[in-house]
């Protein structure tokens, strides 16, 4: 009996290994294409609009097409303007810039895909200031930022939405090298290295960052969240207890860069941290958040599907509104 069972199981295993996959016809909705409008109204820049069509999921990625023949108009603070297509940038561009507090409505119509509209307001920018920047004796560069809300904005009690991009790197300035070409003979070579940025765990948890095991490393009791560079997406609720965001950049010493194999000796290491701070509208915040979640969906079968936030009525895509500020600090 056991022998027969074994034989039968082997037959079963063979049966299971074949004929269990078959191509099927797609019978759901959305078999055609949809219009996609991606627009931006960023303070200090003109409105730009990209009009394309989506790709049916069974089509080749090369099937994406720009809809040059779309009619694009905007209503900027009540004034309507038609946008013209800029073939170099592959965008419909406005001629005037928008400022904080401006109301922007984008209207796109196309003979095949109908009409789509979205509107948003360019946000009043909050700003950041560097409250503290010092290097401790153990070569930890501590940077402390504070958020300053824009007081000219009507206080309607709404939540504010922000994106902060932090990039820290070390420029390693090398001596003149023997293999330099004549063109660069008198210029020092520079090698840039991304540096870790550590955010202490309580703040990291508030930021909702400690979500992926891959990125967690244990550095003693602090249990910092560590990343090389990237975006922090948050609301002003994070700053409800002091309006401060503190982060630490561990700074390797110059002598740790060992290039002796190539005969190089670093002379100077220049540590730089670039900070871009954007104030977003709620719609833009939700869009970026959903896109980031979508982008981190590495284990699709173990994750829920994600709805990308879109604010165009009648099309896929998003009208993105923000005001931004960039600062660069050196050690």
């Amino acid at each position: 009996m056991i022998k027969h069972s074994t034989t039968a199981i082997l037959i079963l295993a063979a049966a299971l290994s074949v004929s269990c996959e078959n191509d099927i016809e797609y019978k759901g909705d959305g078999g055609g294409h949809m219009m996609v409008v991606n627009a931006s109204s960023i303070a200090g820049t003109p409105v730009s609009v990209e009009v394309t069509r989506s790709r049916f999921f069974l089509d080749s990625p090369s099937n994406r097409q720009i809809l040059y023949d779309a009619d694009v108009t905007i209503v900027h603070n009540g004034e309507q303007r038609t946008l013209s297509y800029d073939p170099e940038q592959e965008l419909f561009m406005d001629s005037e810039i928008v400022r904080e507090g401006d109301s922007v409505t984008v209207i796109v119509s196309h003979s095949n895909y109908g009409k789509a509209t979205a509107n948003d307001m360019v946000p009043y920018p909050s700003s950041i200031t560097v409250e503290d920047s010092h290097v401790s004796s153990d070569s930890l560069w501590t940077v402390c930022l504070s958020i300053n809300r824009n007081h000219s904005e009507p206080d309607n009690g709404l939540t504010h939405y922000y994106r902060l991009n932090l990039n820290a790197f070390a420029n390693i300035i090398l001596s003149l090298q023997s293999d330099d070409t004549a063109e660069y003979e008198n210029e020092p070579d520079t090698i840039s290295y991304w540096l870790d940025i550590r955010i202490p765990r309580p703040t990291a948890i508030k930021l909702g960052m400690a979500s992926n095991f891959d990125y967690i490393e244990d550095f003693g009791d602090a249990g910092d969240y560590v990343f090389s560079s990237g975006n922090l997406l948050f609301t002003d609720e994070l700053f409800s207890d002091g309006d401060r965001l503190e982060f630490i950049i561990p700074m390797p010493h110059a002598e740790e860069y060992d290039y002796s194999y190539w005969g190089w000796n670093p002379d100077i290491v220049d540590y730089i941290c670039n900070i871009t701070f954007e104030t977003l509208t709620e719609q833009s915040y939700r869009y970026i958040k959903s896109v980031e979640e979508y982008d981190s969906n590495d284990f699709a079968i173990f994750q829920e599907p994600i709805t990308i936030m879109g604010n165009f009525n009648g099309a896929l895509g998003n009208l993105f509104s923000s005001s931004s500020q960039t600062i660069s600090i050196r050690q």
Binding site: M34, A39, R55, F57, G230, L316
Partner: peptide, 18 residues
């Protein structure tokens, strides 16, 4: 089931390509 695919808003590509 994701039945349509489309380009992300270029503003998301500001720091890395989506």
């Amino acid at each position: 089931l994701y039945s349509q695919f489309y380009e992300a808003n270029p503003v998301t590509d500001k720091y890395y390509y989506i």
